[in-house]
């Protein structure tokens, strides 16, 4: 579905991605794990068009999108749930969700997706009139995920969805990611919580300082000695 080959990106003056090759196939959950600064978020922001690669190509369903503007990339079917949620704090839950559907013109589609969002996280239905800034961290993450789904993406990029959340909430978020994927949306997941990420992923990539150092199925990476030592604390 999406294929990055030889992607090199500078983040300011920092040589952040040093030739990334990775593929996500339709229907998969693929996770990127690695330490802070390994380049995980940079990969997602490059796919979304917020950063321009200096070399390499990104093919999404056959089309080269490496120099495409962010709003066009979204309209092709790639949505991102950014790190730190980035909820619009002065807007209500409903307004945040409607922003996710910014390019959707059909009122029926918008209404249907709002219902789906409320079904995925009933908490959001209760809080629909509340300002985004007044939500708890877990609720903000739920809102950010649903906002990302409002455009009806084929590929959902999730950046650190478990960051700073209580274990019980993480469980809910994991369930949601599974059900989103079961519904036919391909997922590219960036996580520091490697164990959680690899458990739900079909495949995973391990990143170190801007390079892919390991690529395998989620199950095999969980068994890998290097991964266990570096990322699973065993």
């Amino acid at each position: 579905m999406i294929e990055l080959s030889g992607i090199e990106v500078y983040y300011g003056r920092v040589y952040a991605l040093k030739g990334i090759d990775l593929t996500v196939n339709e229907g998969e959950i693929v996770s990127l794990i690695g330490a802070n600064g390994a380049g995980k978020t940079t990969i997602l922001n490059t796919i979304s068009g917020l950063l321009r690669p200096v070399a390499g190509t990104i093919r999404f369903r056959g089309e080269d999108i490496s120099r495409t503007e962010p709003h066009r990339i979204l309209s092709l079917g790639i949505a991102q749930v950014p790190e730190g949620r980035n909820i619009f704090p002065d807007m209500t839950v409903r307004e945040n969700l409607l922003l996710g559907a910014y390019q959707v013109r059909d009122e029926h589609v918008i209404r249907k997706r709002l219902e789906q969002a409320h079904a995925l996280f009933p908490r959001l239905a209760e809080r629909r009139g509340q300002l985004g800034g007044t939500l708890s961290g877990g609720e903000q993450q739920m809102l950010a995920i649903c906002r990302g789904l409002m455009s009806g993406p084929r590929l959902l990029l999730l950046d650190e969805p478990s960051l700073g959340l209580a274990p019980l909430i993480i469980k809910q978020v994991v369930e949601a990611i599974r059900s989103i994927n079961a519904g036919g949306t391909t997922v590219l997941l960036v996580e520091q919580n490697a164990r959680m990420a690899l458990r739900i992923s079909h495949r995973g990539y391990v990143l170190e300082t801007g390079k892919v150092v390991l690529a395998d199925t989620g199950a095999r990476l969980l068994e890998n000695d290097q991964v266990r030592a570096a990322y699973l604390g065993q």
Binding site: P82, F88, L98, L99, Y102
Partner: peptide
């Protein structure tokens, strides 16, 4: 919709762009 987009850009241009706002 455009008005909401304007408010979103005012708060955070990058996140607004991720919402598909031109």
């Amino acid at each position: 919709n455009v008005g909401r987009g304007m408010r979103a850009v005012a708060t955070d241009q990058n996140t607004a762009a991720l919402m598909g706002i031109n």
